[in-house]
Nucleic acid binder design. Structure first.
Length: 816
RNA sequence: GCGAAAGUGGCGGAAUUGGUAGACGCGCUGGGUUUAGGUCCCAGUGGGGUAAUCCCCCGUGCGAGUUCGAGUCUCGCCUUUCGCACCA
């Protein structure tokens, strides 16, 4: 073998072997236990960044480990190819988005191959392939027929100078990123999917998803935000149409002192018509972004409309305010305000000197509504006939009262809103709808799908080129044949990422969206990706899976059985970014140290769910370890083939060495298979190699033990550093490839110990250690502990009250 | 603002079910190998006390609490990170 560890040589060899033997091609074998391991596919932005490397290394380790467990593994890779950056690059470099995207894919595919990930490349696709988005368009037309897709107006960020719609990301401090002009809200017609129809199922299923982190399930529950409450109609004085509001706290009804209205509410427009000051305020409210985070953090402002609503119980006239924090998109665009019992209403009432009326006395110490809102439930006060009732009883009585009077109804409300899928952009999948002057919205018939996005375009400021391409949008109505126009909006890119996992199972299917292979492979056993996708992407994909299920395309209810959310990669404590200048280019590291070193450090530096702090010297440490491993195996192999192992014929040192080997194997298997704490598995193997290095004994027994130790070391490390272990496996004298080897079995007999060390505490403080027989009973342990010299020193003059023995761990002597 | 997490040596982290705090790695210090530097090898390394490798005290963001025993559980606070529906 080569004297020196040369990663570039070793890695090229191993990769050629896998390619020649098609080691990672996934074949549907009926009856085999399948394991579908999937990492969130990348946006082809140009080159891999460290976040990708971390994500895909975790996935590859899981996939290779499961393969060693005998499972039929599918690990595919593809490209989330539509999106905004391609349009920006196109403007900057005068390159069509399609060309830019495909060149990036070429480059990044090469980088993934260089890292040695075990993908089945035969299933690769990009979401900008018409053969992919064809089926997304097809499903959308099905959903339209079912009434699950519909059109309504919704607000977008409008740049009045560039005459274009801006993403929230493109709005900086309320101004367009290119023009610098203050953005406006603009309401335009857009397509929506009825995710709220599935809200209850999406919510309830979370309880039966033990393979998902609690954190993510909680976030999704809160996002869906199911609440039960009352929808009430408030009469508007002098108007026929009442004002509808939803409240989860009808028990606070007597505390309502004003009403809040979204600036876009029709009633606000009406009131503004004869009131220039109010009109100016409504107009001002229009000059904010649609981002909810911005809305929630801005100053709460409002203005009296002059309109009055009638309190449904007291008949009192309540002022109606336009308030900049009431969202038209959420609920009915109007709220009843109870300043005594809602903090936001309280702050608003303070600012505008509106009355604060306490109507709930909470349990325990009574809150002071002069200091802030009292949000706890309790007993009603100052509430007419309802005074003295509990919040819960009042809810029931009031609901019954209003339902009987026809002025209200119990309703379940969701914070979740329907999914707006229209984007006024070019680089996305065309929405397959045609607008006919006579027939209205007509879906593109199956035989005309896909609606192919023209790729030869130049991108300029001022919106999507599709809107300037009559050859694209001019068409005939499929229903009546009249001249009609295609939809020029494209789909939200979350549409593509919501079903790609299923398409990987049957990527070559050209007659259907999915075929029977989808049920063979899905649901995905292990899905791995960034925590930043905890809500949107993962919720949309769950929704989409149910849509496909209800279309008869899959049988399961959920797409991802187990979810691993990886943390971010940081440098100097901050997220890597070009603007901070703290990026690390994985390519440079691979060139210098090889893929195995990069993979090893990435897995060693932190457990997957935590953020990972990048360290250049840590990478050198990983490289050093691999060199030491190389030298260790080389030195052993130089002595010639090892004799067969006879566990019965070993001396104490050899037996101890062997015990360490099997203890390490047991721990590493648990860490990699169950806990996903690859860092501790690697630490355990490092400890083992340190011990093997110190184990200098020779003779047949010692050499056999060393051979076994090195073989097990390589097998444990194989999923993490597959190239060097591929080579060293041959060096140890094996004809077969390590990639086809099963995970080794722990020899329970090797683990037995005659004595164990126990920690002895006095009053919870560590005072001594004792060695006892492994099978010693509690009485023996107790007297051994009490007899210990240092224990006696600390119990002298005290009475031993209790002795706690935790088998195999410690003894605690409680003395007073 | 709302929702969800995280805070442990000089640094990354370990401590899996409430049971030895600091495994493993980096860095640093000392020694060896080398013409030199680097590489490599050996030893030490939370803070303090001590002649001492014995032993003792302190120590897991801050403040309380539960327990024989708390990094771990409970309550309050501080800081940082992620998400907030058109970045992906």
């Amino acid at each position: 073998m080569e004297e020196q560890y040369q990663p570039e040589v070793v890695e090229a060899e191993a990769q050629q072997y896998w390619e020649r033997h098609e080691s990672f091609r996934a074949v549907e074998r009926p009856g085999a236990e399948t394991y579908y391991c999937l990492c969130m596919f990348p946006y082809p932005s140009g080159k891999l960044h460290m976040g990708h490397v971390r994500n895909y290394t975790i996935g590859d380790v899981v996939a290779r480990y499961q393969r060693m467990q005998g499972r039929n593994v599918l690990q595919p890779m593809g490209w989330d190819a539509f999106g905004l950056p391609a349009e920006n690059a196109a403007m900057q470099n005068r390159v069509p988005p399609a060309q830019w995207t495909r060149e990036n894919i070429e480059h990044m595919r090469g980088q993934l191959r260089r890292l040695g990930f075990g993908y089945d490349w035969s299933r690769e696709f990009a979401t900008c392939d018409p053969s992919y988005y064809h089926w997304e368009q097809w499903l959308f037309t099905r959903l339209y027929e079912k009434g699950l897709a519909y059109k309504k107006t919704a607000t977008v960020n409008w740049d009045p100078v560039d005459q274009t719609v801006l993403a929230n990301e493109q709005v900086i401090d309320g101004r367009g990123w290119r023009s610098g002009a203050p953005v406006e809200r603009r309401a335009i017609p857009q397509w929506f999917l009825r995710i709220t129809d599935y809200a209850d199922e999406l919510l309830d299923a979370l309880d039966a998803m033990p393979g998902w982190p609690d954190q993510v399930r909680t976030m999704q529950r809160n996002w869906i935000g199911r609440s039960e409450g009352l929808e009430l109609a408030f009469e508007v004085i002098g108007h026929d149409e009442p004002l509808h509001v939803f409240t989860t706290r009808p028990d606070t009804l007597y505390g309502v002192t004003y009403m809040g209205l979204a600036a876009e509410h029709p009633l606000a427009a009406e009131a503004a018509a004869g009131n220039p000051e109010l009109a100016a305020f409504v107009e001002e409210c229009r000059h904010t972004t649609v981002s909810e985070a911005d809305v929630a953090t801005m100053d709460k402002r409002g203005m009296d409309t002059g309109l009055r609503a009638r309190h449904p119980l007291t008949g009192e006239a309540l002022p109606i305010y336009v308030a900049n924090f009431v969202l038209m998109e959420y609920g009915s665009g109007a709220v009843m305000a109870v300043p005594a019992h809602d903090q936001r209403d309280w702050e608003f009432a303070r600012a505008y000197e509106l009355p604060i009326r306490q109507v709930i006395e909470p349990e325990g110490e009574g809150g002071d509504v002069g200091e802030g809102a009292v949000t706890a439930r309790g007993t009603l006060v100052n509430s007419g006939d309802y005074t003295g009732l509990s919040s819960d009883d009042a809810f029931e009585r009031l609901a019954a009262h209003f339902e009987a009077g026809g002025r209200g109804r119990r309703r379940v409300n969701y914070r979740l809103r329907d999914w707006g899928v229209s984007r006024q952009r070019y680089w996305g999948a065309p929405i397959p709808m045609i607008n006919c002057p006579d027939c209205g919205d007509v879906p593109v018939p199956d035989e005309d799908l896909p609606v192919v996005l023209p790729e030869e375009v130049t991108i300029e400021a001022g919106g999507s080129p599709l809107k300037r391409m009559p050859e694209f949008y001019r068409t005939a109505c499929p229903r009546c044949g009249a001249e009609a126009e295609r939809e020029t909006d494209t789909f939200d890119t979350f549409m593509e990422s919501s079903w790609y996992y299923a398409r990987f199972a049957c990527a070559d299917s050209d007659t259907a969206m999915l075929d029977e292979r989808a049920d063979y492979w899905t649901p995905v056993n292990q899905y791995i990706g960034g925590i930043e996708h905890a809500i949107l992407h993962l919720l949309y994909a769950r929704f989409y899976h149910k849509l496909m299920r209800d279309e008869g395309l899959v049988n399961s209810d959920e797409p991802f059985t187990n979810l691993l959310t990886q943390g971010m990669v940081l440098k100097d404590g901050a997220k890597m970014s070009k603007s901070k200048g703290n990026t690390v280019d994985p390519q440079a590291l691979v060139d210098r140290f090889g893929a195995d070193t990069v993979r090893l450090f990435t897995m060693f530096a932190a457990p997957p769910e935590q953020s990972l702090e990048w360290s250049d010297s840590g990478v050198e440490g990983a490289s050093r370890f691999l060199r030491r491993l190389w030298n260790l195996v080389a030195a052993h192999a130089a002595e010639g083939p090892a004799p067969a192992l006879d566990p019965q014929a070993l001396d104490d040192d050899e037996r101890a060495m062997r015990r360490k080997v099997h203890e390490t194997l047991r721990k590493a298997g648990d860490d990699m298979g169950r806990r996903f704490t690859f860092n501790t598995a690697i630490a355990a193997v490092m400890e083992l190699t340190n011990d093997v290095g110190r184990f200098q004994a020779d003779g047949d027994g010692a050499r056999a033990v060393r051979q076994e130790a090195l073989e097990i070391t390589l097998l444990i490390l194989a999923p993490i550093v597959p190239h060097i272990t591929h080579r060293l496996w041959q060096v140890l004298g094996h004809e077969d490839a390590i990639v086809d080897r099963p995970w080794p079995a722990v020899d329970e007999a090797a683990l037995t110990r005659e004595t164990v060390e126990l920690v002895v505490q006095v009053n919870g403080k560590l005072r001594s250690r004792i060695d006892v027989a492994a099978d010693a009973d509690n009485d023996t342990i107790e007297s051994a502990a009490l007899a210990d010299e240092n224990v006696q020193r600390f119990t002298e003059g005290k009475t031993v009250r209790k002795v706690i023995v935790v088998p195999g761990r410690l003894v605690n002597v409680v003395a007073k």
